[in-house]
Structures are given as structure tokens and as C-alpha cells.
Design a binder for these strands. Structure first.
Length: 612
DNA sequence: AAACCAATAT
DNA sequence: GATATTGGTT
């Protein structure tokens, strides 16, 4: 008996030690690095959840399309550790998902729903849901969702570690366990997407782009010696990688020949690098002849043709909001103090600008330097860069340097920094851009940062913030111009905006060609009044076109219905290469590349209603 | 030459 | 981030 007791005591001790070490081990692994797949039809819900879960170091994948989610799970068995699935998911609802997943994969599945009817909870539980949570899912619930992974492990095999991705050894053990439990892994469920394999032709995208982490270690790309890491500096942002779908127009490929390597710009010797300074733009010199002109203000009339400042009336003045800060208008009497410019003395002598009361000096701030508008008459004196002979001196410039033996003149590259290869916003990419704007909540809420994040969610990789900023700027300009129909709107943008894009811009329930972000008029106006209001000075000329409310656009409903209820239009789980590879399609085939595009572009060409 | 437009500067 | 300017293409 005594022996038995001692023996038992020893067992308990060992067991306790083991438990303690196991718990310690598990503690170090959860919740961080746990790969969660959340499937819900509502993209906003997904984004919110992802945002919250990211704070707990979960790796979160989201998907709005049930079938794609299931295909992803099947094809990437080891990528996901736990699934959260919407009970009322269209296509494959929570129960079907449970059946599929639990029968083929050893994954804990949490069902979430906006109701908690006993029957639903019961069914979910019956089909093997490890939890049933009600939307909106509380943060604590998400924070602790990892417990289901641990629980599942402990129930099935107490000594198995969780399949946390970052630990290959553990993954191996998991595979072993799966084999032990005879988990069927060979049968694809549906639409199995083949895993992409990197070949010499198909290379992973670089540096900080999505898959870099994954493959750096496997394939050893990181030690590639390049200009950046050669010099022990923090490497600059990696250049974007164009996929087959998203290709830049390599318009300046000339430089490839000239300098050997497309992107090896840093070695180009130029004036800037010679003196080891940042490039400085030549300073302006104001003369009596050369006066700054304010964009869009008094003198705009004069120069609008030349400089494209077509509107004196601008959004500000039209809607009286930020325009309350009436901008200072410079004229012959009222001249700006160009304090940092060479000849400012000349003018400051004659006019006491400091007494000009304006918004700026009322509040004790320095008056803003007016932006200048160049006309043909008024040209800046660009210090040493003035081309007087009309020759193209863009690339060569004569500079004089003071050497030890006196002055020598050398002709050299002026050192224009080569520009990034231009990207082209293809129609499909632009559509995604528009889609992203919609998701964000409209053009008025869109900004480059949030847009680029949203595009990344939509598996558009490699687009930079400035890419988006630039496009957004143009987009907004086009939206504005869309209010002012021009005879000359024959270009792609105008066409797109006259037909397709505008329909996507309005807020949810407003049928109008006027983008919502331009709608600064009183909310109480009716449709006609709004249009008149918005178009202000234009109504006389364009009365028929603009002030008539457009007919109801049936596709709006269609579109939004799709948006909110049906399957989404884009696959958020695959990148473009994978998409292409999976579908075996050509990148140029818009319809096929995005087979579930929620609208037919032709649909937007409404008969009898011409936005132009 | 002018329109266009993404990149870049402010 | 918004907007103006630049530099390149069409």
C-alpha cells in the first residue's frame, strides 16, 4: 500500500510537472500567431473583426464568399487553425459549413449568428460547432477564441501541440496526429484551388509584399544582395511588383538601356548626388513682369484658358463652407510679400502688405504665400536653369564649378531623378478602386490610406499609397468635371465616368449622377433643387442636362442588393497570380478574371440617358 | 501642340 | 491628406 501510494504520488507529481510545462508552452503560443478565417457576408463586419483580432496578434483571413472560403480551407489545409462562420451565410450556411469542415478537416468551427434561437444553437452544436456566438461578437470572445483550438487538441490528444503556423516542427507533429486520426486529406471538397508553386518563371513578390514572409525563409530570397542592403542603410520601401493582372506601362523603358538596370537609379550620377544634397528646386525670382497669380481667383479669367483653371467658382465658393475663409486676392494694388524670394524687397517697399487684413493675419499667422500660376507671359526665372535658346535642356545643363585650378565648365547629366515606372489603372483595377470606395462608405470618406488598405484586403497587392492618392485625385477631378459636361469628353475617363463610374459613386439611396462627395447643398432640397444648387453657375447653359433629375437607375438597386446580400464580387483570399492560376485564365480577360463581377459594364449604358 | 495622367513636390 | 506641379505619353 505504501509503495502504491508513493508510486501514485510520483505519478501525480510527474503529471503535474508535465501539465505545468504544457500550459507554459501553450501560453507562449496563444493567441498570437493563430490563423483565423472569418466568413461572413458583410465585409464591414469582417473588417471590424479583423481589426479587433489583429490587436490580439491573430492572423486573420476574411472572406465574404462561402464557396471560396471552403475552397481555400480545402486547398490550404494547414493555413487556418480556426474558422468563424456566419450561421446565415448565403451559399453555404453555417450548418453546411460545419458538415463539410468537420468531416474533412480537423478544425474548430465557431458559428456566429445575429440571433440565438435555441434551435439554431442546438443545430450548430449538433453539427459540431465548438461555440455559438452572437453578433456583434464581443471583443472578449474574439480575444479568447483560441481556447477552442486548445480544447480540441486536448480532447483528441492531450499531448499534441496546436497547429500554430510559425512552428514547422509542430506542424509536422500535427500532420502526424492527423494521420493517426485518419483524417481524410486527399479528397478535395469543392473548387479546390491548387496551391501556387513558385518556379523560376513565377517568382514571389518581393520584400514586404504579402507573401514575402512566407517564402523568404523557404526559398532564401532575403539574402539577395542589392543596392539597398549593400550600404547598410535602412532599405527604402520596396518597389511595387507588378503582377500579371496589374501591369505598369513601362513608358520610360529607355532608361533601362541607358542605365543598365531599370530600378538601379541610385547609381546614376547626377548633380544632386555629386554634392550629396537633396535636390533643390531653383528658386523663383519675382520681377515686376513676373507676378504670382492666384489659382482660381480674380485673375483666373485671364489665365484659365492657358493654365486650365477653368473655374473661378469652385467648390468652396459654391457651397460657402470652407470658402468662409475667403482667400486673399492679389491685384496690382495688393501684392503679396514674397519674403523668401529674391526681389521681394522691390515690392515690399511700395506696399505695406502687413496691413492687409485677411484671414491669415487676423489670426496672427503669416500670410500664406499665394500659389502662382504660370502663363505664357509670366514665366519664372529659374536661376541657373533658364533655357534661353529653346533647346531641350532637360537632360543636359552646363554648370560651373570652382576647382583648384580655377573655373572649369563641365557638361553632365543634370540628374533628373528617374521616375517610377508608370502603372496603368486598368478597367478592372479601376473597378476595384471604385469598389473599395463603396466599401469605405463613399468618395467623401475615401482617402488614400484607407483606400490602399481596403485594396489590400481585396488582394490587390503592391499598390502604393501614392498610386492611390494620385488616382483618387484624378478620380475626384473627373467627378467634378462630370458635373460640367463638356463636348470634349471623349477620353476613357470621361467615358467611364459618364457611364459606369458615376453610378457607383452616389450614396446608397440617391439616384443621381452627382457624386455624393460633391453634395454639399442643404440636405432638405429635393432632387431638382439639389441639382440646381449643385450646379450653381452652370444651370443656365446646361439646364436640360444637369437640372433634370436622371431617371431612376435600376442597376443601383441591383448593385447594392448584390453588395449586401449576395456573394461578393472578388476573391479576398487569392492573390492575382493565384486567381489566374486557379482559373487558368488570361489576365486580360476582365469578365473571366473576375467572374463574379456584380455588374455588367454594358448595363450602365442606359438607353435614352446620356450623362454627357 | 494639346490633352492626358501618374508621379512627385509642396 | 489635399492639391499643385512635373514629366512623360498619346
Amino acid at each position: 500500500m505504501l509503495v502504491g501510494k508513493i508510486s501514485g504520488y510520483e505519478d501525480n507529481t510527474r503529471s503535474l510537472e508535465r501539465e505545468t510545462s504544457e500550459i507554459t508552452s501553450l501560453l507562449s503560443q496563444f493567441p498570437g500567431n493563430t490563423n483565423v478565417l472569418v466568413v461572413d457576408t458583410n465585409f464591414t463586419t469582417l473588417l471590424n473583426m479583423k481589426q479587433i483580432m489583429k490587436q490580439y496578434a491573430y492572423q486573420v483571413s476574411i472572406e465574404t464568399d462561402a464557396e471560396k472560403a471552403l475552397a481555400f480551407l480545402t486547398s490550404c489545409k494547414h493555413e487556418i487553425n480556426i474558422v468563424i462562420w456566419d450561421f446565415h451565410m448565403p451559399g453555404i450556411d453555417g450548418l453546411q459549413a460545419l458538415k463539410s469542415i468537420t468531416s474533412k478537416l480537423d478544425l474548430p468551427v465557431v458559428i456566429m449568428s445575429d440571433d440565438n434561437q435555441t434551435e439554431s444553437v442546438m443545430k450548430a452544436t449538433f453539427y459540431g460547432a465548438c461555440d455559438y456566438v452572437v453578433k456583434p461578437v464581443k471583443e472578449e470572445v474574439m480575444a479568447n477564441i483560441w481556447q477552442h483550438i486548445v480544447r480540441k487538441r486536448l480532447i483528441f490528444k492531450p499531448d499534441v501541440a496546436p497547429p500554430v503556423q510559425s512552428d514547422p516542427a509542430r506542424s509536422d507533429r500535427l500532420d502526424q496526429v492527423k494521420a493517426d486520426f485518419k483524417i481524410v486529406e486527399d479528397e478535395p471538397i469543392i473548387n479546390e484551388t491548387p496551391l501556387i508553386t513558385w518556379t523560376e518563371e513565377i517568382q514571389p513578390v518581393q520584400s514586404d509584399l504579402v507573401q514575402a514572409n512566407k517564402f523568404d525563409q523557404v526559398n532564401g530570397y532575403s539574402p539577395i544582395m542589392n543596392q539597398d542592403n549593400m550600404f547598410n542603410k535602412a532599405p527604402p520601401k520596396p518597389r511595387m511588383t507588378w503582377t500579371e493582372v496589374i501591369q505598369p506601362v513601362q513608358s520610360n523603358l529607355v532608361q533601362t538601356k541607358e542605365f543598365g538596370q531599370v530600378n538601379d537609379y541610385s547609381q546614376i550620377m547626377n548633380q544632386d548626388s555629386m554634392y550629396n544634397k537633396a535636390a533643390t528646386k531653383p528658386q523663383l525670382t519675382w520681377t515686376e513682369e513676373i507676378q504670382p497669380v492666384q489659382s482660381g481667383l480674380v485673375q483666373a479669367n485671364e489665365f484659365s484658358k492657358v493654365n486650365g483653371y477653368s473655374q473661378i467658382m469652385n467648390q468652396d465658393s459654391m457651397f460657402n463652407k470652407s470658402a468662409t475663409n475667403q482667400r486673399l486676392t492679389w491685384n496690382e494694388v495688393l501684392q503679396p510679400v514674397q519674403s523668401d524670394l529674391v526681389q521681394s524687397n522691390e515690392f515690399s517697399q511700395f506696399s505695406d502688405y502687413s496691413q492687409i487684413m485677411n484671414e491669415d493675419n487676423m489670426f496672427n499667422k503669416a500670410a500664406k504665400k499665394p500659389r502662382m500660376t504660370w502663363s505664357k507671359v509670366f514665366q519664372p526665372v529659374q536661376s541657373h536653369l533658364v533655357p534661353t535658346d529653346g533647346l531641350d535642356r532637360d537632360h543636359f545643363d552646363s554648370i560651373t564649378i570652382n576647382g583648384g585650378n580655377g573655373i572649369q565648365n563641365m557638361e553632365k547629366k543634370q540628374g533628373k531623378k528617374p521616375r517610377k515606372p508608370r502603372m496603368t489603372w486598368t478597367e478592372e483595377l479601376h473597378q476595384k478602386f471604385l469598389e473599395a470606395i463603396e466599401i469605405i462608405g463613399g468618395i467623401e470618406k475615401a482617402n488614400p490610406k484607407v483606400l490602399v488598405e481596403c485594396l489590400q484586403e481585396m488582394r490587390i497587392e503592391g499598390i502604393t499609397r501614392s498610386n492611390v492618392a494620385s488616382h483618387l485625385q484624378k478620380h475626384r477631378i473627373n467627378l467634378e468635371e462630370n458635373q460640367i459636361p463638356q463636348q470634349t469628353q471623349g477620353n476613357g475617363w470621361a467615358t467611364a465616368y459618364g457611364t459606369l463610374a458615376t453610378s457607383l459613386q452616389g450614396s446608397d439611396n440617391v439616384n443621381t449622377t452627382i457624386p455624393s462627395y460633391l453634395m454639399n447643398g442643404p440636405a432638405t432640397l429635393n432632387q431638382i433643387q439639389q441639382n440646381q444648387y449643385q450646379n450653381g453657375f452652370l444651370t443656365m447653359n446646361n439646364n436640360q442636362i444637369i437640372t433634370n433629375p436622371p431617371p431612376p437607375l435600376p442597376y443601383l438597386d441591383h448593385h447594392h442588393q448584390q453588395q449586401h446580400q449576395s456573394s461578393p464580387q472578388f476573391n479576398y483570399l487569392m492573390n492575382n497570380e493565384e486567381l489566374l492560376q486557379a482559373s487558368g485564365l488570361s489576365a486580360t480577360d476582365l469578365e473571366l478574371t473576375y467572374p463574379s463581377l456584380p455588374y455588367d459594364p454594358q448595363e450602365y449604358l442606359i438607353n435614352g440617358y446620356n450623362y454627357n
